[in-house]
C-alpha cells in the first residue's frame, strides 16, 4: 500500500489549467443552476403578475418585461435554462451509457454549447425583435 502512494505531481492551478470542453459544460451546468436558484423569487413575482387577472397586475407585468434591462436579464436566464436543459439531457444520456467514449462525449459537449446558444439567439430575436 505504501508503495502505491507515490508523490505524483499535482497541477491544480485553476488560473492556468485548461479545462476541456466537457468540463466547461459541467461547470456551466452548476453555475446556471445556481443562478436560476438565486433569481427564483423574481421569476415567481413575474409569474404571479402574469397570472393575476386584475388589469393593474397585467399592466405592471407588461411594464416590467418591457424594460430593456429586464429583457437582458431574462435573456441571460433563458440561456441559463437552455444550457441547464441541454447539458442535463446529455448527463442523463451519459448515465445510461450513451456516448461515454471520449470522442462522442466531446462532440456532445460541443453540441450542448452550440444548441443552447442557437436557441438563446432565437429567444433574443423573439424578445428584442418581436418575431
Amino acid at each position: 500500500m505504501a508503495e502505491t502512494t507515490k508523490t505524483r505531481p499535482k497541477f491544480l492551478d485553476l488560473a492556468v489549467i485548461r479545462l476541456p470542453l466537457p468540463g466547461f459544460v459541467s461547470i456551466l451546468h452548476r453555475v446556471s443552476g445556481a443562478g436560476l436558484f438565486l433569481i427564483l423569487p423574481f421569476l415567481l413575482c413575474l409569474l404571479q403578475l402574469s397570472l393575476d387577472s386584475r388589469p393593474e397586475a397585467g399592466a405592471a407585468f407588461l411594464a416590467l418585461t418591457g424594460n430593456v434591462f429586464v429583457k437582458l436579464l431574462l435573456l441571460g436566464l433563458c440561456w441559463a435554462y437552455l444550457h441547464h436543459f441541454c447539458a442535463g439531457i446529455r448527463f442523463l444520456l451519459l448515465d445510461v451509457h450513451v456516448g461515454i467514449e471520449i470522442d462522442a462525449a466531446r462532440r456532445s459537449a460541443k453540441a450542448v454549447m452550440v444548441v443552447s446558444l442557437l436557441l438563446t439567439t432565437f429567444v433574443a430575436a423573439k424578445i428584442f425583435g418581436g418575431i
Binding site: 452548476r30 443552476g33 445556481a34 436560476l36 436558484f37 427564483l40
Partner: peptide, 9 residues
Amino acid sequence: HVWIGIRDI
C-alpha cells in the same frame, strides 16, 4: 431538484 442541486454545491 433545486434542493438536491444546491445542497450538493
